[in-house]
Design a protein around this nucleic acid. Structure first.
Lengths: 127, 127
DNA sequence: CGGGATCCGTCGGGATACTG
DNA sequence: CAGTATCCCGACGGATCCCG
């Protein structure tokens, strides 16, 4: 696995980007990170906040993020049981760039959609 | 927008994050954006730069990015045909945050992997 | 309340071969 | 060189039921 540091910088960015996608490129991770924000949140709260997710996918996503050290899970053995999730240090760090992505989308969504319509119209004409 | 600061801000972030993932959440988009950088690149160059991609997936990814207005496609009808791809304005804008993601990964990859090992060991013990 | 277990569909994406 | 056309598989993810 030894990487030569001198190969094109893109090759390294390549592997790095791979890692990013492997960790947060699935359907729900970004949403969970965004929904967590900076305060600890209970499972049911998260589920309510994230439109369209079900228990299973929320559990799986949280487990994966916990495994990556992005989310911390705290169980309080009260009755009824109470489980809270909170972003770790690197999780909060990540959420900053995630926010950057969301802002990009907010800034450019209109333009993206306009581009799509144009593209689709041109595609239709050729048929 | 409405100054009802009380409507959970997350609900909006929710939809926005959805958009982001729908556009660049697949396996190759981030890699293509990173590989494009700031100069126009030919198809074959990109293919060589992005380890593990094949023609079909590179074509599909480029088409999707072109449709979103993130990548511009320029055909020079020489012989042999020559096709160059370049990031658009919003594409370059996006690539900034993509770079941010990659830097996050570079900074924290060690910690993420350590966390994974810990998590996996603990999981194994319980069985 | 916060999960785990199971069943099952779909679709992303890989391999390969062909075309202009 | 750049792109299209088929075939096909496995994982991602949804629904549902059950548990401590």
């Amino acid at each position: 696995m030894g990487n030569e540091a001198n190969l094109e910088p893109m090759l390294r960015a390549n592997g790095i980007a791979r890692q990013v996608i492997d960790h947060i490129g699935d359907k729900w991770s970004l949403l969970v990170i965004a929904a967590l924000g900076y305060e600890a949140q209970r499972f049911s709260r998260l589920k309510a906040r994230i439109e369209g997710i079900n228990q299973r996918m929320l559990t799986r996503t949280l487990r994966a993020l916990e495994r990556d050290g992005i989310v911390e899970r705290n169980v309080y053995p009260t009755s009824p049981p109470r489980v809270e999730y909170v972003l770790t240090r690197i999780g909060r760090d990540l959420s900053v760039t995630v926010t950057g992505l969301c802002e990009w989308a907010r800034r450019n969504l209109d333009e993206v959609e306009a581009s799509q319509r144009l593209f689709d119209e041109r595609s239709a004409k050729e048929m």
